[in-house]
Write a protein that binds this DNA or RNA. Structure first.
Lengths: 255, 255
DNA sequence: TGCCGAGATTGGTTCGAACCATTTGGATTC
DNA sequence: GAATCCAAATGGTTCGAACCAATCTCGGCA
């Protein structure tokens, strides 16, 4: 039941946030450019020049440039100095390298996220967790293990460790809903993360949970999440079925 | 022999480019901030305010902000609105999501890249290659297969496909040196790429080449590379040993 | 016909300024 | 002593302007 709660809550939030109240003029410009300009053009068609867009939409060129930069990050357009800004091929639009929750990530891919809690307990931090959370070895931390699903099918086994200075003695259901909402409530909103991707093979227990064979390929995403104050609020390790998940990213050549 | 040529050439370029001629004031500011400010501070110490930095280094605040933004991308600092900019923990500095060649990537990790060519030939584009390069099925493409090494140890098997409009009938040694240098020469400098990461297991042939066991975990990086004109100049597929390679990235929470 | 160069066009960088949003810390108040 | 409020400090956004760098266009020239 808590699985559905989270799915609905986070999905809803992610969708309404898109059109409600643009956080800035640049964000609004980004949406307008996508809907009113790019959608009327074919791939590799040039967009109007920045100066003309600034004039037409009654904003400064800086705002237009910020919007265009974000569109380029997402793979909607590409830019050529001295030449123009062009519509990109539509088959390669990806999310930017932004920090997202599992639910947001899955919803963005057009599926319905779900989750089943396998474990929820206080444990002592081992060497790895202590190093990742920057706390002494043996400190008490909350450990959560969840099976995450997309459209009902098992997709990933997720292990989470939260420092106890954040959670207190708490082990209640609020830790089982949207974790990111809980972070907000605790005054430690996620701000940035360091992620490491590796390839591994599944052991028997993991294979059982993910409904596949031991030795199958899996993608592990290890993540250390920071709040706005630079405090480490989560260490996690997600093991994704290799045949059902990939990680896409657009990169630019450095100057 | 061509392996050493590439390694030396690309490594050298990557290192000299750092200090020679700053491409812009912002890039220079980034280096100066790292060397003259951050290096004298401890993690979580605040940097001087933007306005003061702008004054001290005699540049505009916009330039300072651009430099700080790039340092944040690389994980050197983190920023908190209303509070300040702070030195980040030093164990999590990564390269930004920039497009790099294998040689640059390995050199950045402090190892020496090498390569052995396994195959070099003209082939007809199959369905996948045709789709990725946006050319008709059956078009002639150059196919290169290389074993890539780091400090002499096999790290990845790399398959490349280049459209023939770029290479012509050419199959000479210039294709075996630094490929990115060849792109420059051909007037098609790499500008951006779309990457997909997946986890797979190695088949027997791959395991043999990578000096490990069939069924071992491997990370595949599929890449479509574009030049400044949006033309697709390379489709590639690199299979990395899962126990010797990971992919690190810093991400921020979206606004 | 082909090449070359000058000028126009376009995105990229830098500047200075003003204002907004958030955070912080001290003063005030109870 | 605790809670509240307010002003200052700081990063974030937007504006207008100027100039730089790469590219494109088109006319002149060989």
């Amino acid at each position: 039941m808590s699985t559905e709660t989270e799915a609905v809550a986070e999905t809803g939030a992610s969708f309404t946030g898109e059109t409600d109240a643009p956080a800035s003029k640049a964000e609004a410009m980004k949406a307008r450019l996508r809907d009113e300009v790019i959608s009327h053009l074919a791939p590799h068609d040039p967009l109007p020049p920045e100066r003309e867009l600034a004039n037409r939409f009654a904003v400064s060129r800086a705002t237009v440039r910020q919007a265009l930069a974000r569109l380029a990050d997402h793979g909607w357009v590409y830019r050529v100095q001295g030449s123009g800004t062009f519509v990109a091929d539509k088959d390669l639009v990806t999310k930017s390298p932004y920090l997202t929750s599992f639910s947001e990530d899955i919803a963005e891919r057009g599926m319905t996220p779900g989750s089943r809690v396998l474990r929820l307990e206080h444990v002592r931090a081992d060497e790895r967790v202590a190093r990742e959370l920057l706390i002494p070895v043996g400190s008490r931390v909350v450990h959560i293990e969840r099976l995450r699903t997309a459209d009902g099918a098992p997709l990933c086994v997720e292990g989470l460790w939260l420092p106890e200075w954040l959670t207190g003695e708490n082990l209640g259901p609020e830790l089982l809903g949207s974790l990111y909402a809980y972070f907000e409530h605790a005054g430690a909103s996620p701000a940035r993360a360091h992620q490491t991707l590796r390839a591994v093979t599944l052991d028997e227990a993991q294979a059982e949970l993910l409904d596949t064979e031991p030795g199958a390929a899996a993608l592990t995403v290890s993540r250390i999440v920071f709040d706005a104050h630079g405090r480490r609020i989560e260490a996690s390790n997600s093991v994704y079925r290799g045949d059902r998940y990939d990680f896409q990213i657009n990169v630019k050549r450095r100057a």
